[in-house]
Design a protein around this nucleic acid. Structure first.
Length: 210
DNA sequence: GATTGGATCGCCT
DNA sequence: GGCGATCCAATCG
């Protein structure tokens, strides 16, 4: 059970009728642009009959082989192979032997870049998220890249699937209220940490850290 | 074949 | 805010 008084969207047919699926051209732009454009979009994950939805509130851009913090910096391996394909595909990887993180590939096909989804504001399927995360606290469901993967029921089998017609998709709401974007250095990396490639919605209460 | 380090989390103080 | 868990993937540090 969620803990505040807000109504969930669970009973509605999802996604909402006026939402627009983000198609491949959206992802085929430069990575920092896509990372910012994804803020305010809705991540929809279907795992069996269970649907979970979160609003993207925090992202990071990883620019490709010339970005030393990007997994593709040292060339193609089995792990990062998805990034070397076309834009609009899910790149899921294991970190610290324990956690998974979810990215979407971006930019031109020959450019192995991606956007890491770092935090979501829970929107629908809250009971599933709470169950998967083992906590009732809304602010602790999706406030980190590995947390949201767990809350949304994303497994490693999602790696390499299309975000246009696969199990995990992004939608935009044309009625989305405007917001301000904060830019900072990326979290948890040792190289190129000063580059302003982390983006989040100013004032949103569901980001991973200030 | 062995070693090293990591785009994190959660619990501790 | 500090640190241990925990283990895979890349590299041979």
């Amino acid at each position: 059970m969620h803990t505040d008084g807000k109504k969930t969207n669970l009973e509605l047919s999802l996604p909402l009728p006026h939402w627009e699926l983000l198609d491949y051209p959206f992802y085929e732009r430069d990575t920092a642009t896509v990372a910012q454009a994804l803020l305010g979009a809705f991540l929809v994950s279907t795992s069996g009959t269970e649907i979970t939805i979160g609003k993207v509130v925090e992202t990071e851009a990883y620019l490709g082989q010339h970005d030393p913090a990007c997994h593709s910096a040292c060339g193609m391996t089995r792990r990062n192979a998805v990034m070397f394909g076309p834009a609009g595909f899910a790149y899921v990887y294991l970190i610290y032997g324990i956690h998974y993180c979810f990215n979407v590939t971006t930019d031109k096909k020959e450019l192995p870049a991606a956007v890491l989804i770092r935090a979501l504001e829970p929107v629908a399927g809250l009971a599933f998220m709470q169950q998967r995360r083992g906590t009732p606290h809304l602010r602790n469901l999706c406030s980190g890249p590995a947390k949201l993967v767990q809350a949304m029921g994303i497994s490693y089998s999602v790696n390499g699937t299309s975000v246009v017609d696969g199990p995990v998709n992004f939608y935009r709401d044309p009625r989305q209220e405007p917001f301000h974007i904060k830019k900072t250095g990326r979290i948890g990396i040792s190289q190129a940490k000063e580059l302003p490639l982390r983006f989040y919605i100013t004032g949103n209460g569901y980001i991973s850290k200030k």
